[in-house]
């Protein structure tokens, strides 16, 4: 009896796997499918026929390409502003509802996300072909982007708002603030962390969008993502494509630092963040 117990103990000791082991498959996955491609992009961007060079970057930073980047940022800004204007009221209304009805309502904007975004964009193309004046214009591209990214604005704002301590609102009312003032001076500032993660989650992917512009813009609106796609696929120019990607990556990192800073200065309180 004693003997078997010790074997069991030994076995248990030997077999005990630290919890971090379960992360290894993911670490491996990251190394193979995220880190390695990044290194390859770096390699292609900074080499030319084997030698190290910055020529690719200099070429990629041409005024023509930067104009495309500026255009993409403009589209991303419009998308973010529209998503915020549309998404904030929805998130606010949802947060005021009973849990059950809010859950039911949120199904309406979460269910479409179960479908691949390309399929949904194709569906828009078919819908818009009934309004031929809109299809293949910048408005159609913007519509497609707002549609695709709206849930990413609503969800973080909603999670911030439901976690907001109701006693702040009661206190504001006690001190004589009307509902509008309460919202402007209390609720809105306290929901800032949600707004900032929403803005980040919409702005960054919109800047790097491609395909939506291709499908709904009829190839007339070229975004930065389309430019990279074109360099890689149609032109087979991997070094230019990689150099363009590096520039985009730098831009994304810079804008994320700004947003992180804004997040830190606004508030450490209130609300879970999704991101």
């Amino acid at each position: 009896m004693k003997q078997t117990k010790s074997i069991k103990e030994k076995l248990a000791k030997g077999m005990r796997i630290r919890r971090s082991v379960f992360a290894y498959p993911y670490v491996l996955w990251m190394a193979v499918f995220i880190l390695a491609p990044m290194l390859l992009i770096l390699y292609y961007a900074f080499t030319n026929d084997g030698g190290i060079t910055v020529e690719n970057i200099v070429q990629a930073a041409s005024w023509d390409n930067l104009k495309v980047l500026i255009d993409s940022v403009r589209f991303a800004l419009y998308t973010t502003i529209l998503c915020l204007l549309l998404g904030y009221p929805v998130a606010y209304l949802l947060s005021q509802m009973k849990k059950t009805s809010a859950a039911l309502l949120s199904v309406f904007f979460i269910v479409p996300m179960w479908m691949n975004f390309l399929l949904r964009t194709y569906a828009w193309k078919v819908l818009l072909s009934a309004f031929t004046k809109i299809l293949y214009t910048e408005s159609a591209v913007l519509l497609g982007m707002v549609y695709n990214f709206l849930p990413f604005m609503i969800l973080p704002i909603y999670t911030t708002l439901i976690k907001l301590d109701k006693s702040y609102i009661e206190a504001a009312a006690d001190l004589g603030a009307n509902p509008a003032k309460t919202f402007l001076k209390v609720v809105f500032p306290l929901s800032m962390p949600g707004i900032i993660s929403g803005v980040t989650m919409v702005f960054i992917p919109s800047t790097t969008t491609f395909a939506i512009s291709q499908l709904l813009g009829g190839g007339k609106t070229m975004l930065y993502g389309d430019l990279i796609y074109m360099k890689f696929i149609t032109e087979q120019s991997w070094s230019t494509g990689s150099a363009l990607s590096i520039i985009l990556l730098a831009f994304v990192l810079i804008s994320m630092t700004f947003m992180k800073k804004a997040e830190r200065t606004t508030s450490d309180e209130g609300g879970g963040r999704l991101w």
Partner: peptide
């Protein structure tokens, strides 16, 4: 020379 074509094409599309 395809590079000259593709540069022109990028400019048209952008």
């Amino acid at each position: 020379f395809v590079k000259v074509f593709s540069d022109a094409w990028t400019k048209v599309k952008a």
